[in-house]
Amino acid sequence: MSIQHFRVALIPFFAAFCLPVFAHPETLVKVKDAEDQLGARVGYIELDLNSGKILESFRPEERFPMMSTFKVLLCGAVLSRVDAGQEQLGRRIHYSQNDLVEYSPVTEKHLTDGMTVRELCSAAITMSDNTAANLLLTTIGGPKELTAFLHNMGDHVTRLDRWEPELNEAIPNDERDTTMPAAMATTLRKLLTGELLTLASRQQLIDWMEADKVAGPLLRSALPAGWFIADKSGAGERGSRGIIAALGPDGKPSRIVVIYTTGSQATMDERNRQIAEIGASLIKHW
């Protein structure tokens, strides 16, 4: 067993022997301040990774656009098919120029040779490549099948209805392509620590998230040296922004954090800054 596999296998073990965790309302004060600064709703939840206990939450059962955070769930569904012998990570998928959609920095470079399922998941999570996500959605049967996968996990809230990039439209009061912070946090925890996926697939999923290259201005910008984070960000229309993450000190994750916002007129930089400040408060009061 590799060191990384050992780390993920012992996530519940280490967490069980940690000192009790206590909620700190100071972080919620910052979440509410972010709402004021952005002029928009902000949803927040913080779960203990081992027990699933909610440590703090704000608007945990209000719907927010998922945006690209759905790509972690998508690759979880792909990995479940791999575990069941219905898919192979090494299978190569070929596609054409007509398949390319807006923001496809990886797939646009491989029109000639195609990409493997493993490479597509890596591109979808680490670079948020939209064509990679659409190609992977095709392998599982489309958005409705991802929703069905989530329902089978016990998540009857999260739903995907459309493809990239239309799913980022974020129309107010439109339930399409949305989740709730509580539902997303619980589902992410199941994917990373539950028995739904094999140990190898859980490790692969967290490795992809740990290698995320496009979430630097968010929670990662607030992390002290030595902290662990595996995350996936999302951005959408109407001032929408979000991030889902597993993080913790001492090089291992111990909490799940989900943050979503929508309806702001603020710039992307300002949305990023507010999420980073929430992260800084979380870490300060850990």
Results as ranks from 00 to 15, higher is better:
Pro25Ile: 06
Pro25Glu: 00
Val29Ala: 06
Lys30Trp: 15
Lys30His: 15
Lys32Gln: 07
Lys32Val: 11
Lys32Tyr: 08
Asp33Ala: 07
Asp33Trp: 14
Gln37Ile: 06
Leu38Val: 01
Leu38Asp: 03
Leu38Ser: 01
Gly39Asn: 14
Ala40Thr: 05
Arg41Ser: 11
Arg41Phe: 11
Gly43Pro: 09
Tyr44His: 02
Tyr44Val: 07
Tyr44Glu: 01
Ile45Cys: 02
Glu46Lys: 03
Asp48Asn: 14
Leu49Arg: 01
Asn50Pro: 06
Asn50Lys: 10
Asn50Ile: 10
Asn50Thr: 09
Lys53Ser: 05
Ile54Leu: 10
Ile54Asn: 06
Glu56Pro: 07
Phe58Trp: 04
Phe58Glu: 03
Glu61Ile: 02
Glu62Ser: 12
Arg63Leu: 10
Arg63Glu: 05
Arg63Thr: 08
Ser68Asp: 14
Ser68Glu: 15
Thr69Phe: 05
Thr69Gln: 09
Val72His: 08
Leu73Ala: 09
Leu73Trp: 03
Leu73Asn: 01
Leu74Ser: 01
Cys75Tyr: 00
Cys75Phe: 01
Cys75Pro: 00
Cys75Gln: 00
Gly76Glu: 13
Gly76Pro: 04
Ala77Pro: 08
Ala77Gly: 03
Val78Thr: 01
Val78Asn: 00
Ser80Ile: 15
Ser80Phe: 13
Arg81Cys: 01
Arg81Ile: 05
Val82Ile: 04
Asp83Leu: 14
Glu87Lys: 05
Glu87Val: 08
Glu87Thr: 05
Glu87Arg: 06
Leu89Asp: 05
Gly90Ala: 02
Arg91Tyr: 04
Arg92Asp: 12
Arg92Lys: 08
Tyr95Ala: 08
Ser96Trp: 03
Ser96Met: 06
Asn98Phe: 12
Asn98Gly: 10
Asn98Val: 06
Asp99Gln: 13
Leu100Gln: 02
Leu100Ser: 05
Glu102Gly: 14
Glu102Trp: 00
Tyr103His: 10
Ser104Phe: 05
Ser104Glu: 04
Pro105Ala: 06
Pro105Gly: 06
Val106Tyr: 05
Val106Thr: 12
Glu108Gln: 09
Lys109Ala: 04
His110Tyr: 06
His110Lys: 09
Thr112His: 02
Thr112Leu: 05
Asp113His: 11
Asp113Val: 01
Gly114Val: 08
Met115His: 07
Thr116Cys: 01
Thr116Leu: 02
Thr116Gln: 04
Arg118Leu: 11
Leu120Arg: 06
Cys121Trp: 00
Ser122Tyr: 08
Ser122Glu: 10
Ala123Asn: 02
Ala124His: 01
Ala124Thr: 05
Ala124Glu: 02
Ala124Ile: 01
Ser128Arg: 08
Asp129Gly: 01
Asn130Thr: 09
Ala132Thr: 06
Ala133Ile: 06
Ala133Cys: 01
Asn134Tyr: 04
Leu135Arg: 04
Leu135Ala: 05
Leu135Asp: 08
Thr139Trp: 02
Thr139Asn: 14
Ile140His: 04
Gly141Tyr: 04
Gly141Asn: 00
Gly142Ala: 01
Pro143Gln: 06
Pro143His: 10
Pro143Trp: 05
Phe149Lys: 08
Phe149Ile: 06
Phe149Pro: 03
Leu150Gly: 02
Leu150Gln: 09
His151Ser: 10
Asn152Trp: 09
Asn152His: 13
Met153Asn: 05
Met153Leu: 09
Gly154Phe: 03
Asp155His: 03
Asp155Ala: 09
Asp155Pro: 07
His156Asn: 10
Val157Arg: 08
Thr158Pro: 12
Leu160Val: 00
Leu160Ser: 05
Asp161Lys: 01
Arg162Cys: 00
Trp163Pro: 13
Trp163Cys: 12
Pro165Arg: 01
Leu167Gln: 02
Ala170Val: 00
Pro172Ser: 04
Glu175Ser: 04
Glu175His: 04
Asp177Phe: 01
Thr178Asp: 12
Thr178Pro: 14
Thr179Phe: 11
Pro181Val: 02
Ala182Ser: 09
Ala182Tyr: 10
Ala182Thr: 07
Ala183Val: 10
Ala185His: 08
Ala185Val: 06
Thr186Met: 09
Leu188Phe: 14
Arg189Phe: 15
Leu192Trp: 14
Leu192Met: 14
Leu192Tyr: 13
Thr193Pro: 11
Thr193Glu: 12
Thr193Lys: 00
Glu195Phe: 00
Glu195Cys: 00
Glu195Asn: 00
Glu195Met: 00
Leu197Thr: 08
Thr198Val: 02
Leu199Pro: 08
Leu199Trp: 09
Ala200Met: 10
Ala200Arg: 06
Arg202Asn: 02
Arg202Glu: 01
Gln203Gly: 02
Gln204Arg: 01
Leu205Asp: 05
Ile206Asn: 12
Ile206Gln: 08
Asp207Ala: 04
Asp207Gly: 03
Glu210Phe: 09
Ala211Ser: 07
Asp212Val: 12
Lys213Leu: 07
Lys213Thr: 12
Lys213Pro: 12
Val214Leu: 15
Val214Met: 15
Gly216Trp: 13
Pro217Ser: 12
Pro217Lys: 01
Leu218His: 14
Leu218Arg: 13
Leu219Ser: 13
Arg220Asn: 13
Arg220Val: 08
Ser221Cys: 12
Ser221Val: 14
Pro224Asp: 08
Ala225Ser: 11
Gly226Trp: 01
Gly226Thr: 11
Phe228Pro: 13
Ile229Pro: 10
Ala230Tyr: 05
Asp231Leu: 14
Asp231Trp: 10
Lys232Asp: 07
Lys232Met: 15
Ser233Pro: 15
Gly234Met: 14
Gly234Asn: 05
Ala235Arg: 13
Ala235Leu: 14
Glu237Leu: 10
Glu237Tyr: 10
Glu237Met: 04
Gly239Glu: 01
Gly239Lys: 04
Ser240Asp: 00
Gly242Gln: 03
Gly242Pro: 07
Ile244Ser: 12
Ala245Asn: 12
Ala246Ile: 13
Ala246Lys: 12
Leu247Asp: 05
Leu247Met: 10
Gly248Gln: 03
Asp250Leu: 12
Asp250Gln: 13
Gly251Leu: 08
Pro253Val: 07
Val257Cys: 14
Thr261Gln: 10
Thr262Lys: 02
Thr262Tyr: 13
Ser264Pro: 00
Thr267Pro: 10
Thr267Gly: 11
Glu270Ala: 11
Glu270Lys: 15
Gln274Asn: 14
Ala276Gln: 12
Ala276Cys: 10
Ala276Val: 14
Glu277Lys: 08
Ala280Trp: 11
Ala280Thr: 13
Ser281Glu: 12
Ile283Tyr: 05
His285Ile: 09
His285Phe: 00
Trp286Ile: 02
